[in-house]
Design a protein around this nucleic acid. Structure first.
Lengths: 247, 247
DNA sequence: AAAATAGTGTCTCTTAGACACTATTCC
DNA sequence: GGAATAGTGTCTAAGAGACACTATTTT
């Protein structure tokens, strides 16, 4: 592996051994009124760690292709889903001696929200044999995941649910134009609970979150005003959570 | 996963080149009613990047010594300050081609809050020639910092200030026992603005944040009840920010 | 008593939540 | 008109902010 020895006094000292560096992306979308995450199945070849197990989308940093960590995450997202402009946020990093049998490794984890209409068929890539959208239930996912990805996915879901209480993140799960009812529904799917219509609308409309477009969504009932996000990629923060819990 | 590998088909494929892995820690404390961050001065030896510049405390991950990233951060904190049990939170990671002249590198950044009374003289360590507590003004620090540490420090300060609005973080900047006035003062130092006494006390006492100890702080005036944190290492989250801004 | 800080009470304003009401479309 | 969903108005409760007030110590 890596060397570039240190040891001469007064010379630049670099570590003899470098951890493995990967980037993983927890890619979320909504399908059939459920929150889903993209899983890829690991290669079955002998010598590969966690053969056949499901894992988050990800892989090694490529120091030639990738300008930086975020570009690496975007590349992986693009390779798996074809989506190029998602909501992408860094979740954190997990690194240590024993999370990968191949040695000391660090994964740099992002989470992405992609619109319902973009969540088409995921493609499998190198070192993987398949990919699928897995529904998320109350406490995560049914599959046992490779490496420490279960823990990472739990962290991602927790971050998402927490942030939804005071930000506009669910808007990034919707297509470009949506009604307020659809936005509310998106919140309800992620939060796993109903919200009150009047308060929801007051709150959303009192911010710089959305702006109406001159179109309506037609249906077997009264047409609904369509809106779009005011700024396409940065979320809005509210000053309160949706429902204060007990102190 | 990714290849660029040892190239035998059907064999474990590892990347030929691995990024450099470092851990940096933004260590904050309060001294003389100012928020301070610990800076270390980089070595002046030829070949060292950013010679003589000030930087956040940090250094390479040591795959032999460090069990995981957090242990590495704790080690660096201990080496610089002697503090063993701080408030420690992962801030994020910064990685890319060009942030370090030695090549593609990733730094894994933590921020730590240490109590006023623990913030004694910092020691300098390997590859550094000095260390100091640098006061933080409105927009950061006067020094130009090495690498991308200025950007990282800005992110750390932003995270701290944001989180202070709705968490109990400033409590970790105080000694074990403190009065409510001292706690309020700690908030005011970090936030850079005054808070209203009555609302502050109501808010703090309505949570599980602190518990009184059977002692008072004496002075040339009415003695004040002393409190300590209920749980020593996990912050409390409030349901609202301190001061709602304009929608 | 004066100085100084600790700690409380009261009033107002904002906003979430509950819930009932009205509005507009398709059938 | 009925079904269905869009969208509004009204009332209440909780908590923040402002601010004045009381309390308890030292000097």
């Amino acid at each position: 592996m890596k060397k570039k020895s240190t040891a001469r006094p007064g010379e630049p000292s670099l570590p003899l051994l470098r951890p493995l560096s990967t980037v993983d992306v927890a890619i979320f979308t909504v399908r059939a009124d459920r929150l889903h995450v993209l899983l890829v199945q690991r290669n079955d070849e002998p010598g590969e760690p966690c053969p056949g197990q499901w894992a988050l989308a990800g892989g090694f940093v490529d120091v030639d292709k990738d300008e930086n960590l975020e570009a690496c995450a975007l590349r992986k997202l693009r390779e798996k889903t074809g989506v190029t402009s998602p909501y992408l946020e860094q979740l954190g990093c997990w690194g240590g001696k024993s999370r990968d049998p191949r040695g000391w490794s660090v994964t740099h984890v992002y989470f992405a929200l992609i619109p319902t209409d973009a969540a088409t068929k995921p493609v499998s890539g190198a070192n993987t044999t398949g990919a699928k959208w897995e529904p998320i239930s109350k406490h995560g996912v049914k599959e046992a995941l490779a490496f420490d990805h279960e823990q990472i996915l739990t962290a991602a879901i927790t971050r998402l649910r927490n942030k939804v209480e005071y930000t506009s993140l669910p808007a990034f799960l919707l297509p470009r134009e949506f009604t307020l009812s659809e936005l509310q529904h998106s919140y309800e799917i992620v939060l796993g609970r109903k919200l009150e219509k009047s308060a929801f609308r007051t709150r959303v409309l009192s911010t710089e979150l959305v702006t109406p477009v001159p179109r309506f969504k037609e249906g077997p009932n009264r047409p609904a005003q369509l809106y779009r996000l005011k700024s396409a990629n940065s979320p809005v923060f509210f000053q309160r959570t949706f429902k204060p819990a007990e102190g």
